[in-house]
Amino acid sequence: MKKIIILCFLQALIYGCDNKGFLIENNNKKLKEYKIDFEDTLVDQFPNKIPYSNVNVVSNTNVKKNDIGLLLYEYEVDGGDIKNIRKKFGKRAIAKYKSSDSCFLVVNRFETDETYEKFEVVEAIDSTEVNKECAKQLYPIPNFIGSTYSKGKNDIKLDDSFEIYVLESKAGNHFKKFDVQPSPQMPDQWKNGYSKGIALSEKNKTIIYWSIIW
C-alpha cells in the first residue's frame, strides 16, 4: 500500500509540473504575440520571459474606444522578484503613487463592469470628476477594471497595497497605427496620450505591467 501511495504522489507531482510548464509556455507565447502589435518603446518594461504560470495577459487594439493597450498581471510572485523589479524601475519612474492615495488621473475612469465586458461606449460621464483640481499635476494611469482586485475598490480598481510607478507618459497622438478620437473621459490637456508603467503589491504577491493609449 505504501508503494502505491508514493507512486500516486509522484505521478501527481510530475503531471502538475507538466501542466505548470505548459501554462508558462503558453503565457509567454501569448505575450510575445501581443507585444508585436505595439511599438517596442511602448512595451519595453514588460519582461522578455514570464517565469510564472498564474498570470493574465490583456490586449486591446480596437480604436473604437479609448482603451488601447497591453497589461500583464503576474500573480503569486516571489517576494524577491518584487523587490528586484522595484529596484530596477524605481529610479526610472517619473512619478510614484500609492493605491491608497485620494486622487488619481485615471484613463477611462467611468468604465463599468458592463461597459467593459460588452465593449460599450461609456455614456455616464461626470465633468466634475474629469476636471478635478487635485489631478491637474498628475500623470494618467489605467483603470485596472479587469484585474482580480477590481470589485468594490477605489478609482483605479486596486486595493490599498499597491505601489504605482509611471515610467513614461505624454499627451497627444504618438502612434500612427492607432488613430483614436479625443477621450471625453479625460481633461483637455490629456484628451489623447499614452502611459506606461508597473504596479507592485508585496501583500498580494502581484506585479502589473501596463502600456495604454487613449
Rank of each mutant, 00 (worst) to 15 (best):
K3Y: 09
I4L: 13
I4N: 11
C8H: 09
C8T: 13
I14N: 09
G16P: 06
N19T: 12
E25K: 04
N27C: 00
K32G: 05
D37Q: 15
T41R: 13
N48W: 12
K49R: 14
I50V: 07
I50E: 00
P51A: 08
S53E: 07
S53N: 06
V55P: 00
V57N: 01
V63N: 03
K65L: 11
L71Q: 12
L72F: 01
Y73I: 01
D78P: 03
G79L: 12
G79Y: 08
G80E: 15
D81I: 02
I85Y: 04
K88Q: 13
G90C: 08
A93M: 07
K98G: 13
S100Y: 11
F110N: 09
K118A: 08
F119Y: 14
A124F: 13
I125T: 06
S127P: 15
S127R: 12
E129A: 14
V130C: 07
K132F: 10
E133S: 15
C134I: 11
C134V: 11
A135E: 10
K136L: 10
L138P: 06
L138Y: 03
P140M: 09
I145P: 02
I145E: 09
G146N: 11
G146L: 06
T148I: 08
S150V: 05
D155V: 09
L158W: 03
L158I: 05
L158F: 02
D159T: 07
S161N: 14
E163L: 02
E163Q: 14
V166H: 11
A171I: 03
N173H: 06
H174Y: 01
K177G: 14
V180W: 05
M186W: 02
N192H: 11
G193L: 03
Y194D: 09
K203F: 06
I207N: 01
W210T: 01
W214D: 02
